[in-house]
Write a protein that binds this DNA or RNA. Sequence first.
DNA 1: CGGCATCCATGGCGATACTG
DNA 2: CAGTATCGCCATGGATGCCG
Lengths: 118, 118
Amino acid sequence: MLEDCSITRQILDRVGDKWSVLIIVNLGAEALRFKELQRRSGGISQRMLTQTLRHLERDGLVWRKATPTVPLTVEYGLTSIGESLLGPLTSLVDWVNKNNGKIAKARIDYDHQHDTQE
Amino acid sequence: MLEDCSITRQILDRVGDKWSVLIIVNLGAEALRFKELQRRSGGISQRMLTQTLRHLERDGLVWRKATPTVPLTVEYGLTSIGESLLGPLTSLVDWVNKNNGKIAKARIDYDHQHDTQE
DNA sequence: CGGCATCCATGGCGATACTG
DNA sequence: CAGTATCGCCATGGATGCCG
């Protein structure tokens, strides 16, 4: 009823892919340079960071500003659309933070009563 | 700052995997039997539906009720935790529905000004 | 009907090395 | 510093076939 079509799926895929959410949240606080963004994003490889940023940029969620200084300076930040995503996204993240205890417990219960050992 | 740890990533992975969101939203309306759920979930294969349901069940988001009738009846529905996820999830889906036009346009612009033709 | 097991193709993603 | 290009692994997920 909401997402029979492919567009919605595509965008949810983007939201759900391994790094997008992390990048968006990190950029939500402030615009950042490539290296700094990578540093804040845990163990993301340089390849994946580039790729993720390209996707987000293509979707109009992130802007890129390259300054042709000597060792080249590039900054990334959220566009207004990107910022508007921050709300739904953080409400989701909040939900996770609030419920991960229950979920962890549910998993233990499930595993326990399905194969006691093995 | 929010999701350095692995738990959050794991759960977001679940949210972001190809079918979970669709299943949860479909079950949000009402409890459904396996076949009916499959029918409403577009082109999901039986394997993936089973797998996704197991994951969601393990996380305590979905319950499963098997009635040993002759041709076996199984119903799935959301637990209270699962229902509490419905909120954040639909706010995300709403966002997508509201912005997919802009995103589609942004993509066209991006593609156009990056390689005018292949 | 509901579900598990197997096989197999695709592609996500990391590591590495090279360019501007 | 900020990328692009290449390679190779392995997880995701579809198709198919069998069981309760």
